[in-house]
Design a protein around this nucleic acid. Structure first.
Lengths: 231, 231
DNA sequence: GGATGTGAACGACTTCACAGCG
DNA sequence: CGCTGTGAAGTCGTTCACATCC
């Protein structure tokens, strides 16, 4: 009844490279994070066992994931960290700069802008928008806050590709629609609602309340409510 | 080599209820969210098709997920929304109040405190901590900011069960250790690092940079870099 | 008719086990 | 020897199809 994309295997638009599972991709960013840390610590060769330990998964899993990047590993030695980083970044599509805008300049937006590690990974924020007239015209981290009705114009001018939705729930869908109309290609949604987007516009949603609920559930399980483990 | 909890099926501490897959639990919060919305809109009976459409999954999937809550559905009719909500909340362990503390009073903490929907779902923040002496003693949303060295004392006194880590990367692990030592049972980590926690303390991690990378990858795939689909 | 609950089929992900190489 | 790459096996999750009930 409900039609859903049945393709679980992600096939890159350019035909060449081997298959790639969604689950692997979800871990690529984590590999990247740990590899960069290893490199900072002076470790230049990393084994699947080390990476697995860092992510709390098995070494076999790591090798399977990394296999689709080409034969980067050296038997008996491990993987050269910097090459692996380059390959991962290339495969994730972040071996270039991505530009993004943020709609809704509240505390969350401020947190995002201050967050180290975005520009470090090649992301750059190029514009801010807010519906609140009193915020418009102000500057935050060298970025001017624009009125929402100038979204189309400014997004086109800056060529921004990604949009972050950090507005209250009620406004989220209309903001998303505006972003799509302005030509944005992907949306990161923090509003606790399921956005409806046309095909061709990607979506990643982060619902903070959901995360807390998952945590509560895990705790609920381990120290059960009836059966309290006092040990 | 790397040992990982192999139990993919979650078995509640109290033996009685049927099996429960992790994947289902991940969707329970979302069902809850949509059911509450349905109820607000006056819809009191919801079918698996409606729920599936809301979450963009199949109706069969919805029924499978909901099956482990007992036979709540009425053939030919659907599920009574309020009963389903109660059952989900019970199963998730959020049919009671959970108390939490936040460590690191930056913009993210402010965003969390202002976020509607936490207390609405039964979560209550009872204390804030910060290492910055200039912040200590200040008040945020009626909550006093305490120095980090009083964590053990205050967490015991308030009986807080969950801890939110919203500090810079460098401080994350030591804050987590302190939370664990103070008797916290679950940690929601926003710092971009993999926390090491003892067994018995649950962990949910939200890495914002990882989310943006996932989004970039999705966009990278759909409008490939070489092969641009202008349609 | 319309919708649930569920075994069975299917597909995806993970782990195992081992050949092969440096 | 240590570690990679990979088929094979095993596990988990989703979809299908249909008996069943209101």
């Amino acid at each position: 009844m409900n039609k859903v994309d049945p393709a679980q295997h992600v096939t890159p638009a350019n035909g060449g490279e081997p298959r790639l599972s969604r689950a692997s991709v979800a871990r690529f960013s984590l590999y990247l994070r740990h590899l960069q840390r290893f490199l900072r610590e002076g470790v230049q060769t990393v084994s699947s066992g080390q990476l697995g330990e860092a992510l709390a998964i098995t070494d076999a899993q790591v090798r399977k994931d990394l296999a689709c990047l080409g034969n980067l590993g050296h038997p008996g030695v491990g993987y050269p960290a910097s090459e692996l980083i380059a390959a991962l970044r290339h495969r994730l599509g972040i071996d270039r700069e991505w530009t993004a805008v943020v709609v809704g300049v509240g505390n969350l937006a401020r947190a995002l802008l201050r967050y180290r590690g975005f520009e470090q990974q090649g992301f750059r924020f190029v514009a801010l928008f807010d519906a609140d007239a009193s915020k418009v015209g102000q500057t935050l981290d060298d970025l001017k806050i624009h009125p929402t009705d100038r979204m189309a114009e400014i997004i086109r001018k800056t060529g921004a590709e990604l949009g972050v939705v950090a507005v209250p729930v009620e406004a989220a869908q209309s903001v998303a629609d505006a972003l799509v109309a302005a030509g944005i290609r992907g949306i990161l949604n923090f509003a606790p609602t399921a956005l409806r987007l046309p095909a061709g516009v990607s979506l990643v949603a982060v619902d903070l309340a959901v995360q807390l609920e998952q945590l509560a559930f895990l705790v609920h399980l381990t120290h059960g409510p009836e059966k309290l483990e006092t040990h």
